[in-house]
Amino acid sequence: MNLRLHIWRQAGPNDTGMLKTYDVANVSEHMSFLEMLDVLNEDLIAKGEIPVAFDHDCREGICGTCGMVINGRPHGPVARTTACQLHMRTFKDGDEIYIEPWRAKAFPVLRDLVVDRGSFDRIIQTGGFVSVNTGNAQDGNAIPISKPDADRAMDAAACIGCGACVAACPNSSAMLFTAAKVGHLASLPQGQAERSSRAMNMVLQMDAEGFGSCTNHYECEAACPKGISAEFIAQMNRDFISTTFGGKA
Protein backbone atom coordinates (compact mmCIF):
# COMPACT_ATOMS: atom_id res chain seq x y z
CA MET A 1 0.00 0.00 0.00
CA ASN A 2 1.00 3.63 -0.42
CA LEU A 3 0.69 6.05 2.44
CA ARG A 4 1.08 9.73 3.14
CA LEU A 5 2.68 10.49 6.51
CA HIS A 6 2.65 13.79 8.35
CA ILE A 7 5.42 13.59 10.92
CA TRP A 8 6.45 16.03 13.63
CA ARG A 9 10.01 17.18 12.91
CA GLN A 10 11.88 19.10 15.56
CA ALA A 11 15.67 19.34 15.43
CA GLY A 12 16.18 19.82 19.15
CA PRO A 13 14.59 20.84 22.46
CA ASN A 14 14.72 24.54 21.58
CA ASP A 15 13.52 24.21 18.01
CA THR A 16 9.88 25.09 17.30
CA GLY A 17 9.16 22.08 15.14
CA MET A 18 6.54 21.44 12.45
CA LEU A 19 4.71 18.68 10.64
CA LYS A 20 6.37 17.49 7.44
CA THR A 21 4.83 15.33 4.79
CA TYR A 22 6.36 12.14 3.41
CA ASP A 23 5.04 9.62 0.96
CA VAL A 24 5.94 5.99 1.49
CA ALA A 25 5.30 3.44 -1.21
CA ASN A 26 4.91 -0.33 -1.22
CA VAL A 27 4.26 -0.77 2.46
CA SER A 28 3.61 -4.40 3.28
CA GLU A 29 0.65 -5.15 5.53
CA HIS A 30 2.89 -7.49 7.51
CA MET A 31 5.22 -4.71 8.60
CA SER A 32 4.99 -3.33 12.06
CA PHE A 33 4.37 0.39 12.30
CA LEU A 34 7.95 0.96 13.41
CA GLU A 35 9.28 -1.14 10.53
CA MET A 36 7.35 1.13 8.21
CA LEU A 37 9.20 4.06 9.82
CA ASP A 38 12.49 2.13 9.45
CA VAL A 39 11.83 1.89 5.72
CA LEU A 40 11.08 5.60 5.53
CA ASN A 41 14.30 6.35 7.41
CA GLU A 42 16.42 4.19 5.10
CA ASP A 43 14.89 6.13 2.19
CA LEU A 44 15.66 9.44 3.83
CA ILE A 45 19.27 8.42 4.45
CA ALA A 46 19.62 7.34 0.84
CA LYS A 47 18.34 10.75 -0.23
CA GLY A 48 20.81 12.52 2.03
CA GLU A 49 18.13 13.69 4.45
CA ILE A 50 18.01 13.38 8.22
CA PRO A 51 15.98 10.35 9.37
CA VAL A 52 13.11 10.68 11.83
CA ALA A 53 14.19 10.13 15.43
CA PHE A 54 11.84 7.88 17.40
CA ASP A 55 12.27 5.83 20.57
CA HIS A 56 11.94 2.06 20.64
CA ASP A 57 13.79 -0.97 21.90
CA CYS A 58 12.10 -4.29 22.67
CA ARG A 59 9.49 -4.01 19.90
CA GLU A 60 7.43 -6.48 21.92
CA GLY A 61 5.28 -4.13 23.96
CA ILE A 62 7.09 -4.58 27.25
CA CYS A 63 9.92 -2.05 27.65
CA GLY A 64 7.76 1.06 27.35
CA THR A 65 10.32 2.86 25.22
CA CYS A 66 8.23 3.46 22.12
CA GLY A 67 5.56 6.08 22.15
CA MET A 68 4.00 8.35 19.59
CA VAL A 69 0.62 9.81 18.93
CA ILE A 70 -0.79 8.24 15.77
CA ASN A 71 -3.78 9.99 14.24
CA GLY A 72 -4.50 11.68 17.53
CA ARG A 73 -4.30 8.53 19.65
CA PRO A 74 -1.34 7.59 21.84
CA HIS A 75 0.10 4.34 20.42
CA GLY A 76 -2.42 4.43 17.57
CA PRO A 77 -5.86 3.09 16.82
CA VAL A 78 -5.73 -0.44 18.25
CA ALA A 79 -6.71 -0.80 21.91
CA ARG A 80 -4.21 -2.26 24.36
CA THR A 81 -1.45 -2.22 21.77
CA THR A 82 1.83 -0.32 21.90
CA ALA A 83 3.07 1.48 18.80
CA CYS A 84 5.71 -1.22 18.30
CA GLN A 85 3.03 -3.92 18.22
CA LEU A 86 0.79 -2.10 15.81
CA HIS A 87 0.87 -3.64 12.33
CA MET A 88 0.26 -2.02 9.01
CA ARG A 89 -2.68 -4.26 8.21
CA THR A 90 -4.63 -1.86 10.41
CA PHE A 91 -4.22 0.76 7.66
CA LYS A 92 -5.24 0.78 4.03
CA ASP A 93 -3.86 2.05 0.77
CA GLY A 94 -4.04 5.82 0.43
CA ASP A 95 -4.35 6.51 4.19
CA GLU A 96 -2.91 9.70 5.61
CA ILE A 97 -1.30 9.21 9.01
CA TYR A 98 -0.37 11.94 11.49
CA ILE A 99 2.53 11.04 13.78
CA GLU A 100 3.41 13.27 16.71
CA PRO A 101 5.33 13.02 19.99
CA TRP A 102 3.78 12.79 23.45
CA ARG A 103 2.81 16.34 24.32
CA ALA A 104 3.12 17.35 27.95
CA LYS A 105 5.00 20.00 29.86
CA ALA A 106 6.68 17.32 31.97
CA PHE A 107 7.82 15.42 28.83
CA PRO A 108 9.94 17.92 26.86
CA VAL A 109 10.62 16.96 23.25
CA LEU A 110 14.29 16.09 22.66
CA ARG A 111 14.03 15.55 18.95
CA ASP A 112 11.22 14.67 16.52
CA LEU A 113 9.20 11.98 18.30
CA VAL A 114 11.62 11.47 21.21
CA VAL A 115 10.64 12.97 24.56
CA ASP A 116 12.33 13.06 27.96
CA ARG A 117 10.34 11.01 30.48
CA GLY A 118 12.83 11.47 33.32
CA SER A 119 9.99 12.92 35.40
CA PHE A 120 8.55 9.39 35.76
CA ASP A 121 11.80 8.17 37.30
CA ARG A 122 11.81 11.05 39.73
CA ILE A 123 8.29 10.19 40.86
CA ILE A 124 9.42 6.63 41.61
CA GLN A 125 12.47 7.94 43.47
CA THR A 126 10.27 9.63 46.05
CA GLY A 127 8.55 6.46 47.18
CA GLY A 128 7.82 3.87 44.49
CA PHE A 129 9.67 1.09 46.34
CA VAL A 130 9.81 -0.96 49.50
CA SER A 131 12.72 0.14 51.70
CA VAL A 132 14.41 -3.19 52.10
CA ASN A 133 18.16 -3.56 51.79
CA THR A 134 19.64 -6.63 50.17
CA GLY A 135 20.03 -9.32 52.80
CA ASN A 136 17.14 -8.20 55.01
CA ALA A 137 14.61 -10.58 53.58
CA GLN A 138 12.92 -13.45 55.36
CA ASP A 139 11.82 -16.59 53.57
CA GLY A 140 9.66 -15.89 50.52
CA ASN A 141 6.85 -18.07 51.85
CA ALA A 142 6.89 -16.61 55.36
CA ILE A 143 3.98 -14.29 54.61
CA PRO A 144 1.22 -15.94 52.58
CA ILE A 145 -0.37 -13.54 50.12
CA SER A 146 -3.83 -14.38 48.87
CA LYS A 147 -4.03 -15.06 45.19
CA PRO A 148 -6.47 -12.18 44.55
CA ASP A 149 -4.07 -9.76 46.27
CA ALA A 150 -1.10 -11.10 44.33
CA ASP A 151 -3.07 -10.90 41.09
CA ARG A 152 -4.19 -7.37 41.83
CA ALA A 153 -0.62 -6.35 42.56
CA MET A 154 0.46 -7.90 39.27
CA ASP A 155 -2.28 -6.10 37.34
CA ALA A 156 -1.01 -2.77 38.62
CA ALA A 157 2.66 -3.68 38.29
CA ALA A 158 2.15 -4.44 34.58
CA CYS A 159 2.58 -0.70 33.81
CA ILE A 160 5.41 -0.27 31.33
CA GLY A 161 6.06 3.41 32.07
CA CYS A 162 5.40 4.49 28.50
CA GLY A 163 3.59 7.75 29.24
CA ALA A 164 0.59 7.22 26.96
CA CYS A 165 -1.71 7.99 29.89
CA VAL A 166 -0.15 11.43 30.19
CA ALA A 167 -0.32 12.03 26.46
CA ALA A 168 -3.99 11.07 26.41
CA CYS A 169 -5.03 13.21 29.36
CA PRO A 170 -6.40 16.68 28.59
CA ASN A 171 -4.61 17.89 31.75
CA SER A 172 -1.41 15.91 31.12
CA SER A 173 -1.86 14.22 34.45
CA ALA A 174 0.36 11.31 35.48
CA MET A 175 -2.24 9.90 37.86
CA LEU A 176 -2.58 6.52 36.19
CA PHE A 177 1.16 5.89 36.11
CA THR A 178 1.60 7.00 39.72
CA ALA A 179 -1.46 5.15 40.92
CA ALA A 180 -0.30 1.96 39.24
CA LYS A 181 2.86 1.90 41.34
CA VAL A 182 1.06 2.96 44.51
CA GLY A 183 -1.61 0.33 43.84
CA HIS A 184 0.94 -2.41 43.17
CA LEU A 185 2.68 -1.92 46.50
CA ALA A 186 -0.51 -1.17 48.45
CA SER A 187 -1.88 -4.57 47.41
CA LEU A 188 0.93 -6.43 49.16
CA PRO A 189 1.81 -6.84 52.84
CA GLN A 190 5.38 -5.76 52.05
CA GLY A 191 4.12 -2.37 50.93
CA GLN A 192 2.11 -1.50 54.05
CA ALA A 193 4.80 0.02 56.27
CA GLU A 194 5.37 2.93 53.91
CA ARG A 195 1.94 3.02 52.37
CA SER A 196 0.84 6.47 53.47
CA SER A 197 4.12 8.28 52.96
CA ARG A 198 4.49 6.64 49.56
CA ALA A 199 1.21 7.94 48.14
CA MET A 200 1.86 11.37 49.61
CA ASN A 201 5.41 11.78 48.35
CA MET A 202 4.73 10.45 44.90
CA VAL A 203 1.72 12.69 44.36
CA LEU A 204 3.66 15.74 45.56
CA GLN A 205 6.50 14.92 43.18
CA MET A 206 4.03 14.45 40.36
CA ASP A 207 2.77 17.99 40.96
CA ALA A 208 6.31 19.34 41.24
CA GLU A 209 7.17 17.88 37.84
CA GLY A 210 4.43 19.90 36.22
CA PHE A 211 1.92 17.15 35.51
CA GLY A 212 -1.66 18.36 35.66
CA SER A 213 -4.33 17.20 38.03
CA CYS A 214 -6.93 14.55 37.43
CA THR A 215 -10.46 15.62 36.56
CA ASN A 216 -11.79 12.12 35.89
CA HIS A 217 -11.81 12.01 32.10
CA TYR A 218 -10.45 8.43 32.05
CA GLU A 219 -8.77 9.01 28.71
CA CYS A 220 -5.69 7.52 30.37
CA GLU A 221 -7.34 4.18 30.94
CA ALA A 222 -8.54 4.03 27.33
CA ALA A 223 -5.07 4.81 26.00
CA CYS A 224 -3.11 2.54 28.31
CA PRO A 225 -1.62 -0.33 26.32
CA LYS A 226 -1.52 -2.52 29.42
CA GLY A 227 -5.11 -1.96 30.48
CA ILE A 228 -4.22 -0.44 33.86
CA SER A 229 -7.53 0.25 35.58
CA ALA A 230 -8.50 3.77 36.65
CA GLU A 231 -9.73 2.17 39.89
CA PHE A 232 -6.17 2.42 41.10
CA ILE A 233 -6.50 6.20 40.91
CA ALA A 234 -9.45 6.10 43.26
CA GLN A 235 -7.51 3.89 45.64
CA MET A 236 -4.53 6.24 45.59
CA ASN A 237 -6.78 9.20 46.26
CA ARG A 238 -8.09 7.45 49.34
CA ASP A 239 -4.57 6.75 50.59
CA PHE A 240 -3.55 10.31 49.85
CA ILE A 241 -6.53 11.90 51.58
CA SER A 242 -6.19 9.79 54.69
CA THR A 243 -2.50 10.77 54.88
CA THR A 244 -3.24 14.44 54.42
CA PHE A 245 -5.65 14.29 57.33
CA GLY A 246 -3.00 12.76 59.51
CA GLY A 247 -4.33 9.22 59.57
CA LYS A 248 -2.80 6.07 58.23
CA ALA A 249 -4.00 4.57 55.01
Binding site: F129, V130, V132, T134, G135, N136, A137, Q138, D139, G140, P144, I145, S146, K147, A150, D151, A153, M154, A157, H184, L185, S187, L188, Q190, G191
Partner: peptide, 14 residues
Protein backbone atom coordinates in the same frame (compact mmCIF):
# COMPACT_ATOMS: atom_id res chain seq x y z
CA UNK B 1 13.33 -14.01 49.30
CA UNK B 2 14.82 -10.65 48.37
CA UNK B 3 12.46 -10.18 45.44
CA UNK B 4 9.40 -11.07 47.51
CA UNK B 5 10.47 -8.52 50.13
CA UNK B 6 10.72 -5.88 47.41
CA UNK B 7 7.15 -6.57 46.38
CA UNK B 8 7.71 -8.61 43.23
CA UNK B 9 4.24 -10.06 42.55
CA UNK B 10 5.20 -13.67 41.91
CA UNK B 11 2.38 -16.03 41.02
CA UNK B 12 0.70 -17.53 44.09
CA UNK B 13 -1.47 -20.53 44.81
CA UNK B 14 -4.86 -20.08 46.46
Amino acid sequence: DQCVAQGVPFAREY
